[in-house]
Amino acid sequence: MLDLRDPSLYAPAPAGDGAVLLALRDPASGALTFPRSPYGSPALEQVELSGQATLLACITLHQPVLPGVVPPLVVARLQLAEGPVVDGVLDGTAEPPPGTAMRAVLVAEDGALACRFRPVA
């Protein structure tokens, strides 16, 4: 089993190749924070998010404009099922249309398990 690239962000789902995302929740309001931040209120509780999401938009990076990016890379804005909006990387080079149901998966990449998003089959 490979190590997780960013264990502060995600963990393997109980079954399959899916990932859960590691967040914080305000027990008073239910408000969620992702990623987990050590800088906010200590009263926040740790929760796991399902990794289910809806694709809002995605684009292909055609140039190596960011550190660690090897083009082509498809990056997306996703609304997690629990509410937060995050930026993530898609698995593959296809650009699914807005509204596509997505899920977080763990893929082997450069000797570690990275979190990517893939359309729900």
């Binding site: 684009i59 804005r77 995050v86």
Partner: peptide, 18 residues
């Protein structure tokens, strides 16, 4: 000190392309 799901997080270029 925070990790992020995408290397594009906080990239103005990606923000506006999206």
């Amino acid at each position: 000190g925070l990790a992020r799901l995408s290397p594009s997080d906080h990239s103005p270029l990606v923000e506006f392309a999206l």
